[in-house]
Design a protein around this nucleic acid. Structure first.
Lengths: 353, 353
DNA sequence: CACGATGGTGCACACGTGTGCAAAGAGGTG
DNA sequence: CACCTCTTTGCACACGTGTGCACCATCGTG
């Protein structure tokens, strides 16, 4: 009665397949497949019986096989430069929320801004046949972009507003240039004229945009930017650099000039600056105003609480994921740019007399 | 010459398969498969020719098909309760590093301590046939554990040292009880006798262990624990609660009693306590000592820098991933418990006279 | 009763890869 | 030359699922 050519499926405790259900129900595996998909090709009684049997046998569909057959894996690759970065954390949260709501799984990879690793990661994504990629890396090297465009894999970048070469890639970002202008205008309105900038070398695109906003705002106010006011953390071969340490090391170099306020590339740099001030006995904001960027959690908890430019991190992630989903649906999508918002706390005040 | 039964593979810009290479090289797909695996069954000239051809055609193996055939997906599911939590961030980093080194992909899922979501997540992992699971959720509900053991999926838990029901699951953790003792002993040695505890309700296992360490250490020193000294943040139905806010709200309730120091469940609670002290004009550590737990980055940056119990977060992640790999190799593995370390900074000092 | 329409089911193939086994070819030896 | 051995390759199946098409049964109608 039983067809003996199937070599004992129960051997290695393999999960039950539709074939197993088919044998148990006395139908073909096609019928089971259709029944489980509620196809109205199958007679209602059979459909119900198969479904109950599947339930009872603890059937769980094999997504690997489904991915192979249908050409969708329902998987999205996610590249970030650092998981420890609180900025990335919020963005990922937004991404994950939308992904989970749409039954998409996320493949997480951390690049540490290592070019070699970046290439490895996208090759892994290709091998795994992800439906698309979201890249929230701080820095975008030529080879990386080139590879990504070349293989025509649906991709959305976060905070990488298109310059020159990146034109063809989709992105969602918060406007760095405008954000920087908000920060510097705030300091100008408090009466500061000599305003410094502490930047980072290893995220040159966003650093350049924020720096440009800084320069243009000062120029527009009739202040000539002094090279002595600007310090940028060098690019180390060590990819695990710490922004706070950099900010702390950078600030003292500014003291030779006579700045009364400093605009920092991000909140961590700003926290470093605050710590340096404390060490040097400089009172913030009475003797020195400090502005950060990002508005990560920590900005609220340091002393004094940091005035900073709030980026809609959660929203960035949500939008990026939604955009990718739309893209996969074949809908027309367009780059999006979100506005930032100044959050005034206690690290800024009028300049000393 | 060409066999016409294959319907134009070039139609939908599908990635090249070994079949395509086989046709181009005039051999069978089996030969290509073996050649690409450097099998010495294949003649060296053919092997080289196929490899070069594969390279030239931009062949990238289909991991989905490989997963279906071989019974390994080289994928590990990762469940965490919150991505924004800085503690989780470091742990994930450790996990990811080891995973990437062993060419394992990570499927990231966030549970937000939502029981329903937890069950959905592990079902997704089952569907995707992950090789194993690492769970770093703060809280482990019965149904979750039960399901995880029941389906016999290789699993490693982080910071969930086995109580009763969880005996069968592997875990790597840092000793909460001993860590709490370190913290309280430090306060005792400074001369404090009336020491408070600020806990959390929604992570009851670890909270219970730390609280037990707190109680026992006080008792051993001959101090009777006063119920007035202990406050625990209530469990909200809102799963996105904020520890800092909780700590801030909890501290004032302690002031009625006459504690001179407070041990907090984690650094975020402690930061909230610091902020409450500042608002109330209580000087730390002169009038009140505060100790945290975890040693997340932020602990170094608040004012005053936080004395805390350092957990080897990176190491926890690395060990968990390595343990899972060993488990998959069939090696014998055993639960591991790491030691914590007290980090004395400036938020603790002798009690006021 | 014969024939067509309709609804339900199974066959067979496809997705892309890996592998046991047979077969074919080459080369050596008696 | 016949036979055996060894190397190299292809056939065929497997992994688990989905689906076009053919087949069969049943029913209705002329």
């Amino acid at each position: 009665m039983g067809i003996p050519d199937r070599p004992k499926r129960t051997s290695a405790r393999r999960p039950v397949s539709i074939q197993d259900i088919a044998e148990a129900a006395g139908v073909s595996h096609s019928t089971v497949s259709r029944a489980l998909h509620n196809s109205d090709l199958i007679r209602p009684e059979v459909r119900l019986r198969v479904q109950q049997l599947a339930q009872k046998m603890g059937y769980i569909p094999n997504a690997v096989a489904q991915s192979l057959k249908g050409q969708r894996t329902h998987t999205v690759g996610l590249v970030i430069s650092s998981i420890a970065d609180p900025f990335a954390g919020r963005v990922v949260r937004g991404i994950e929320e939308i992904a989970q709501a749409n039954r998409i799984s996320l493949l997480l990879s951390v690049s540490y801004n290592d070019p070699e690793r970046e290439l490895e990661i996208i090759e892994t994504f290709q091998r795994r046949r992800v439906d698309g990629v979201i890249s929230a890396t701080a820095q975008m090297r030529g080879a990386y972009v080139q590879r990504l465009t070349q293989i025509k894999m649906p991709t959305v970048m976060i905070n990488q507003q298109a310059d020159s070469e990146a034109d063809r890639l989709l992105s969602v970002d918060a406007d760095d240039y405008a954000g920087a202008r908000l920060a510097v205008e705030h300091l100008l309105s408090l009466g500061h004229r000599r305003i410094g900038y502490l930047g980072v070398g290893n995220r040159w695109q966003s650093n350049r945009r924020r720096f440009a906003g800084y320069c243009d705002t000062l120029s527009a106010a009739g202040v000539a930017v002094n090279a002595q006011w600007v310090r940028v953390a060098p690019i180390l071969n060590n990819p695990r650099s710490d922004d706070v340490v950099d900010g702390q090391a950078l600030l003292p170099a500014l003291l030779g000039s006579d700045v009364t306020a400093v605009f920092c590339y991000n909140d961590l740099i700003a926290v470093g600056a605050l710590m340096a001030c404390r060490e040097l006995g400089i009172v913030v904001p009475e003797q020195m105003s400090v502005v950060g960027y990002d508005d990560v959690d920590i900005a609220r908890y340091v002393t004094p609480p940091l005035t900073t430019v709030h980026q809609p991190k959660l929203r960035l992630g949500e939008l990026a994921m939604q955009m990718l989903l739309d893209l996969l649906e074949g809908q027309a999508v367009h780059n999006t740019s979100l506005a930032n918002e100044l959050v005034v706390r206690s690290s800024t005040g009028p300049p000393p007399l």
